[in-house]
Nucleic acid binder design. Structure first.
Length: 392
DNA sequence: AAACCTGGCAACCGCATCTTA
DNA sequence: ATAAGATGCGGTTGCCAGGTT
């Protein structure tokens, strides 16, 4: 496909715009709209290429642009969205009214990235830098916990990004899927939405989450705890899928409740970002049977809500279950599973989401990690459900 | 006061994607 | 179905202002 050169045309001006040029461009667009950008410069009497005009308009002259310092709230929004979306500046910008993608990108590169780095958070993965947090701690168990959490956080970043997209695809017809995760304990200071609760009838089977494939694959292909293998396997799966963009109709409530803090994870960095201290729960699991692919399990053993087998053979997940006392009894098969822990069986009160290693040995243990950081992220993403345009 | 350094930001560039004929 | 053009996007560059030596 050939393409005619744009800004390399002889005689076209480059570089900073003069006030006169701005005025010409503004006046023309106000009167005629931009129409074809390519034709605009000639019509407006500008010695610029259309691309340059478009950029000038979208990043600077547009009347609905907010300029000046980013508020703390805006910065938190950027950080959370970046954790989920990565360098997809236009998508991030769609959640920040009146800010351009270019402005957000610049702010990230010049301010936020450095700030996170200083706080010991890797700005690309949004996970704690283990060397920074672990050094001097003198506590091998804590270090191991951190390592474990960092791994899951990294995986979860990918998984949640994917999940929310998938959720957006199917939720219109499947309101129950709000059970599927990370919505409900939002404490994000940047929540811009109003949430709806909807009731649902019998849920249809849910699609298999590819993240489980990744986990399963990792678990079978690599040594437990081998982070590189884990990441590689995860990337393999993610690379298979396109992440196209749906429109969200997610429904969830915004509950808060006290959560037992049993582990020693240091959440100071998240706290510094404006998030509350995070809870960590521990649970016991019990072995259950291997589900058939695509199988939907009902009312089995401890499960008093619906559970869904994953299409990926061994690995599957529980999307909701009843709690009893302080114990969260769940059924998992060998391998890994997602646990969605709700408060007292109230599916709108999501306590945590966790990926569980059961190892097939029976009575395996796992940790439930905080979701507030990612809840906030997801809440932001789903802000688009309340009228904002889809962003993906 | 001048030279140098650094951070911030507007704008450019090239590629990807979408639209249209 | 395909090619060409138009637009969008993200990475990068380079200018400029302010600070430091």
């Amino acid at each position: 496909m050939g393409r005619s050169p744009c800004c390399s045309k002889v005689g076209l001006k480059k570089g900073p715009w003069t006030p006169e040029e701005d005025q010409k461009l503004l006046a023309y667009i106000e009167q005629h709209g931009h129409g074809s950008w390519r034709a605009l410069p000639a019509n407006a009497g500008l010695q610029r290429c259309g691309k340059s005009c478009r950029l000038r308009w979208t990043n600077y002259l547009r009347p609905d642009i907010k300029r000046g310092k980013f508020s703390l709230q805006e910065e938190q929004t950027i950080i959370q969205l970046h954790a989920l979306l990565g360098n997809r500046w236009s998508a991030i910008a769609s959640h920040l009214p009146k800010r351009t993608d270019n402005e957000i990108k610049n702010h990230w590169n010049t301010h936020l990235k450095k700030r996170l780095t200083k706080m010991g958070i890797d700005p690309m993965t949004h996970k704690p830098k283990l060397d920074a947090l672990g050094s001097g701690a003198g506590n091998a168990k804590d270090a191991a916990n951190l390592n474990h959490m960092a791994q899951w956080e990294s995986a979860r970043l990918e998984a949640e990004g994917r999940l929310v997209r998938e959720s957006k695809l199917v939720l219109v017809s499947n309101p129950l899927q709000h059970q599927l995760g990370f919505f409900g304990t939002s404490r994000s200071t940047t929540t811009q939405l109003t949430y709806n609760n909807s009731t649902s009838t019998a849920p249809p089977p849910l699609p298999c989450l590819d993240v489980l494939k990744a986990w399963k694959r990792t678990w079978t292909k690599s040594t437990r705890g081998n982070y590189n293998s884990y990441v590689n396997a995860f990337s393999d799966v993610m690379a298979m899928d396109d992440l196209e963009s749906p429109t969200s109709t997610l429904n969830f409530s915004d509950n808060s409740f006290p959560i037992q803090d049993v582990a020693g994870f240091d959440y100071n960095t998240l706290g510094a970002l404006g998030f509350n201290k995070s809870p960590v729960l521990t649970c016991e699991t019990s072995i259950f049977k291997e589900p058939e692919p695509e199988e939907r399990l009902e009312n089995s053993m401890d499960l008093q809500e619906m559970s869904y087998g994953c299409t990926d053979g061994n690995a599957w997940f529980v999307d909701s279950f009843r709690t009893s006392g302080n114990d969260q009894n769940v059924n998992v098969t060998e391998g890994l599973a997602d646990m969605f822990v709700y408060n007292g069986g109230d599916q709108k009160s999501l306590l945590a989401v966790e990926s569980c290693d059961n190892g097939g040995g029976g009575g395996g243990s796992f940790e439930l990690e905080n979701k507030s950081y990612w809840n906030g992220t997801m809440n932001l993403v789903n802000a688009s459900s309340s009228g904002l345009p889809p962003v993906f």
